[in-house]
Design a protein around this nucleic acid. Structure first.
Lengths: 342, 342
DNA sequence: TTGAAAGCGCTAACAA
DNA sequence: TTGTTAGCGCTTTCAA
């Protein structure tokens, strides 16, 4: 036994069991142990058994970061979300995460808090990790961000929106169409005096703008817009209705930029004895699970968040494993779900 | 210029800009470039500028996985959560993630879906990534899991519960105390006929058991328990109340294992014209943001989820950076928030 | 089927 | 302050 076979631990070693240790114990070369662990059918049954025994005995857990560096495949996917407390994104992330996990990938989660500066820092941190794919909530607006992403060569899927110029793949729906169709829906219900309660993000503004345009096109009075900014709580919804009522006492339809805001408006309406939907129609956005079973049940815009997550995971994994994605741009649409509140 | 200075790209290279490229452009050694990037004050202003220019010109983004391998510090923290659609955990994860990000760490998210098999697979995947720390929701029950974690040497913080034998660090509260105190609270309100609506997870069962014990101790009739299993929706809450009413028509107090279930019970009560809290008291668990502003506002058990996330992030970062955590076991307690529903 | 050699891109350790 | 050397733990490449 010569010197280099001695179990001399360099001062730098992390001390954990490595493939080397396993290989030595099994009496094979490291690369053979690697094959036994990663592609068992490339190895003789005899070797396989010896290696598996060694793994068992040592409690060896492969170091995926070393593997990732060597193979330039991290099996890591990054997701960028504005916030997970904004419940409309939660189902998407949950399904994305679960689908990825089943395919052997881990999810790295980053939140921008709707802040461009944070988004930029996040992007840098993400690219530095060399994930095999990046999931983006929304379209990357900043051109700096777009070019970084492009330069990184990492597969990207933008979601929750549509654009003629995606960075790479795209799974979304049209926010303008939603605004327009909700306006039509409410007009068809005989409503005449409209208001919007919306958060300050770009997509909510786009839905709102399309709604206003449509209402104007159809010849109705201007739409009162209440902007709650960053406070997307039920409470802001309640306060918003108070403000609206003081400005537009005869309001008879309100479209909110989220279900939670809609719940707030609904709650305040009930507190004031305003009958919903008789005197006031309320429409939400997102179709978060519980709004279907509330009383009254909320009329809202349904987005298949879970479907977006699943599909995005599929796209990203396909690309990570070298399979082309044949239709990388998909419009998943939306549906106005008519319940009791409108 | 000799051979090894030529920009010969090996067949294996990922093709991206590396520190080598930057160093060459700046006319310094790679390690000097590394220092300029990572600890700018260890380097002369002149070198710093040259390197920064080179970084700018090339669009270099450091490869953190290579860095992590070399330094055995991944700057990655893993979090294990039952599910993020279970809203009570969302705030914790959000705060954990944000706090970590500010300290320069990324979060890897894993969901067990309350399944032990998945938890085991997840643990393996996580340890393989060699994160600098692991955040666990709840106590690691499986002894196999515990020993794996212990063997990995990775700092661990268990949360949302208390145990005399934590793996490492612990930030939690007593579920038995909650069950007991809610029982006392309801008894003090003059309630006499109790029911529980609970999900099938271990912590909910512990709260329920303590509640039952206390009620029995105080000499009241047995508590009717409705187990909704894995369906934690508002709808299950509604259905639970229907079942309870058919078994215990004179029920006057219900403690639910989550706010969402409580909202369901509340909704069903309103649908049936049962006056809350006059005829029926309802108590939730979690104090999810919006329940304070509902009508009636929900009486519930407040947990400082955000605080747990922040504190856990602090512990994990301290340990990752070699700072000892002086009081690594903390009971954050809870508070019964009395609102309108009880 | 198995193995030796040579990296992946970075940083620790030591030296100048 | 800067550089040289030698890895981190794995996998690709090429050869046997």
């Amino acid at each position: 036994m010569n010197d280099k076979d001695k179990p001399r631990k360099s001062r730098r070693s992390s001390g954990a069991i490595t493939l080397r240790d396993v290989a030595k114990l099994a009496g094979v070369a490291p690369i053979t142990a690697s094959r036994a662990v990663n592609s068992p059918d490339q190895v003789s049954p005899d070797v396989l058994k010896k290696v598996q025994d060694a793994v068992q005995r040592t409690g060896y857990v492969p170091n995926r970061v070393a593997g990732g560096l060597a193979s330039s495949r991290s099996r890591l996917i990054a997701a960028v979300v504005p916030s997970i407390v904004v419940s409309v994104f939660v189902e998407t992330i949950e399904t994305l995460n679960n689908t990825l996990f089943e395919a052997g990938y881990q999810l790295m989660l980053g939140q921008t808090g709707y802040s461009p500066e944070r988004e930029e820092a996040l992007l840098e941190a993400i690219i530095g990790r060399r994930p095999d794919g990046i999931f983006l909530t929304g379209i990357m607006q900043s051109s700096k961000g777009r070019s970084r992403l492009l330069a990184s060569g990492i597969p990207v899927v933008e979601t929750w929106d549509l654009t003629p110029t995606p960075i790479d793949m795209l799974i979304g729906f049209s926010h303008s169409d939603i605004g327009r169709e909700v306006a039509d829906f409410l007009i068809a219900k005989g409503r005449r005096r409209f208001a919007l309660v919306r958060a300050g993000d770009e997509r909510a503004m786009r839905r709102a703008a399309a709604f206003q345009t449509r209402v104007a096109q159809q010849g109705f009075t201007g739409v009162f817009v209440d902007n709650v900014g960053a406070s997307r709580s039920l409470k802001s919804g309640r306060e918003a209705l108070s403000r609206i009522l003081s400005q537009v006492p005869d309001v008879d339809a309100i479209f909110c930029s989220s279900d939670l805001l809609a719940m707030g408006v609904l709650t305040e309406a009930m507190a004031r004895g305003i009958q919903v939907p008789k005197r006031l129609s309320i429409v939400g956005f997102g179709d978060v699970p519980y709004v279907a079973d509330m009383m009254p049940a909320l009329t809202t815009v349904h987005i298949n968040g879970s479907g977006i997550g699943r599909q995005a995971a599929g796209f990203l994994v396909d690309r990570a494993e070298g399979r082309p994605v044949v239709e990388p741009i998909v419009d998943v649409g939306f549906a106005i779900i008519e319940r009791d509140s409108a």
